[in-house]
Amino acid sequence: MDFFHAHQAQHYLVLGALLFALGAAGVVLRRNAIIVLMSIELMLNAVNLTFLAFARFPLVANSPMGSFLSGHAAVFFVIATAAAEAAVGLAIIIAVFRSRTSVNVDEFDTLKL
């Protein structure tokens, strides 16, 4: 019962880690570029969850690192960055699609040249 009722940091951390692993697997395994972008969003949000968990349950009380708000601030930065990243990423995908008529990342191997 404790496990479900006592809200503690490790629950959020485990969930964040699972989400992050899912996202990472999506980035590495999926072929569709849009799905890859979505998986990146998932990873970013897993990180956000971890930030918030530590903000709610600080490891050290009255940490000299700052108040619990610093975790919230980091999350806002991440959300903003994620939005920008998504915009740039989608733009790149559209540009690539125009030249390759495909969003399959398997076919984008020009980095080896």
């Binding site: 590495v28 980095l111 080896k112």
Partner: peptide
């Protein structure tokens, strides 16, 4: 190791 596949790079990095 250098086959141009970004996903492979990402996997190796991870």
């Amino acid at each position: 190791f250098q086959n141009g596949d970004v996903q492979r790079y990402a996997a190796v990095t991870a």
